[in-house]
Nucleic acid binder design. Structure first.
Lengths: 213, 213, 213, 213
DNA sequence: GATGAATGAGGCTTCATTCAT
DNA sequence: CATGAATGAAGCCTCATTCAT
């Protein structure tokens, strides 16, 4: 069982009013900034509130605690990325395998690259917290999207498509993570994207050919 | 910019004596256990000392601080893994590309799998600490080993081998990390290893010069 | 020495209007309920306002602060009890000592028992607050009422009647408090009332002048 | 069920060493002083530690929290009082009813008066905390001691001795509490003691006589 | 008048680290 | 060398109170 009850991780207040919405956004933004500037170890509620320009009390009116704030932040980002990938996959159903492969790889990297700071920060934030559930959900969505995309391809693939997709996702998400956690993300990402695309195409083609033999 | 000067991160005394060596090992082992059992957030010096069966004072006679302890632990593990990969690569110089690929992938995964608990723990430990230098060093060693291995292959490869190796390593290390951080590592690792090996072979074959002709 | 000047402890506005009166009553009632349900430690202004169905701002329009609210509440309850006892004593002037004794004991316990929940709550509320003045006043009124009653008795009593009354009141109020703070108040109160009445009668009969002769 | 698990309320460390013992005593003593000087509302861990001349960390090495400290303090005092009463009762078994009565009353008041500051403080400390269990235990010990004493008396008493003892204890403990919580404790205690003794004797004699009728 | 978002002082507690024994 | 009691900075969070709407 999770060490923290789920009830503690949900936002306290729905941002219905404009001012509230702005406050929540400021807190999220501040969290990302503190994470990037000072690292996870120095991510304190005081710093977050300070950088967000609100009082510590205000922060606690929207989130029942620090962990809940991170949970909400990570949840939001993962959902955005998963949704983007899902949509891209949906739009490319029935295409040749190479295009399917590129679709997935690019959609995922685009999602991460659209907000590189957040992405870097999020990799930090997940550390030491119990975000497994959140991550598992996101991974599952990616899995379904990729599976459905590849299964729809005009090219036929192997029957253990589940394993292929599983490994594909591990490699795409894990590899991308390494790039974002390393130096020179901006410089290296284009190269990596290209190579990763080639790798995945090669892999999937291999999986296709092997079946035909 | 670094919060702790590098000098503070080295062990205080060399474990020249047997008893010292045993103590240091007990502390390392205890750290891994606490990390696995209680998570990074509850990794306190008191718990480590307790589980290691030594007093808190003793811990501080071997390490100048908690961060230094983790630094040393991570350093040791990364060094072991890098050395193992280096050796495997050295032994397979001049082989065909497929064998080179398998060598690297298997050597890396073997290194991680030889002590899965430590590996899982270490992924936790690195979070939030400034281990970039350590990781960069390890990555560089992997890079050199892989580069040298692939360059020696009886098959010719593309000229931007650096980029290929860079991406290869990102994918292998990142993908493996995802497996170790996920559930069912034991169950999923064999499948992943196989698929990753296939993927890398396919990728490198794609990158062969001969193919381009 | 008192942490809050006395001027701060009076209600901000007189409940002249009906709506005002209803609001104040709702707040009082809510305070009692929160006290009983959650205890003195969780008696927060937010909870009181919530349970009373008003906003926190409204609460502060009727009371200058939490302490003043409690002060007013306790004051009202103590006044009710003292008034009830005073009236009962007045109505029984000149009776035999046994009847005087019963009058006082029963009047006091009746006053407390007429609203047992409030009584329990109030004992909680007084804790930790500076209600000494309020309590002293109430005790003094009880003292005067009892003194006057006993002095009027058709039986003669000792000359150190002050001491007798003082002890009588300590015993009646203190004993009753123990019952209300303990378990099974409802079950035990009748028995206690009977025994307390017997005890007081015996005590006062012991103190009769005629006995000394 | 109690809101706080019992495990949280026990001391963290047994004061085996001399220094430890002195520290614990200093903390207890400081708690009493802060309670008397500043009241329950201002009884903060920082103040306690300050007045005890130890750091806040030291306080937490001996007690898992503020509540546990108070729990231990109250427990100690209640135990001392109960033990003293028990012993006095034991030593006066078989005596006439008047002597039994005086024994109990005086033993109880002596116990409280032997450390009037602590007694006053303790009445404050119990406020708002969950000490019911502790208090119930103490009351039960008093009940047994008094019951046994009175049952052993050379005079015969009524058969509903339980009710008599119950009421007796409510009156003695509650009345004494009122004296300690009021002003001029020192001045008023002797008078109250005398009157209370008379009252209890009269009550018990009444209970004896009524049976014989 | 009523509302409730915002405030921030201050409470409780943890934990890396030191140092006298 | 080992021990563990002591330290205190710093983290998280609550809650009485204010004030713009």
């Amino acid at each position: 069982m999770a060490p923290t009850s789920l009830g503690q991780l949900k936002p306290r207040k729905q941002p219905v009013q404009d001012r509230s919405h702005a406050t929540v956004d400021a807190i999220f933004e501040a969290t990302v900034q503190v994470l990037l500037r000072d690292g996870a170890r120095k991510l304190t509620t005081r710093r977050i509130a300070e950088r967000a320009g609100v009082s510590i009390g205000t922060l606690y009116q929207y989130f029942p605690g620090k962990e809940a704030l991170l949970y909400a932040l990570v949840s939001r980002q993962l959902d955005l990325a998963a949704s983007a990938v899902e949509e891209a996959c949906r739009e490319n159903h029935g295409r040749p395998i190479n295009q399917c492969s590129d679709t997935f790889v690019n959609a995922y990297i685009d999602a991460k690259a659209s907000n590189p700071e957040s992405s870097r920060a999020l990799y930090q934030a997940t550390a030491g917290l119990d975000m497994k559930e959140l991550i598992d959900t996101a991974i599952m969505r990616l899995h379904r999207a990729a599976y459905s995309l590849l299964a729809s391809s005009s090219d036929d693939l192997v029957d253990d498509l589940d394993n292929v997709v599983f490994s594909l996702i591990a490699v795409v998400t894990g590899g991308t993570r390494q790039i974002f956690e390393g130096d020179d993300t901006a410089t290296r990402l284009p190269t990596f994207r290209e190579q990763l695309a080639r790798m995945c195409r090669a892999y999937l083609n291999e999986s296709k050919v092997s079946k035909r033999v």
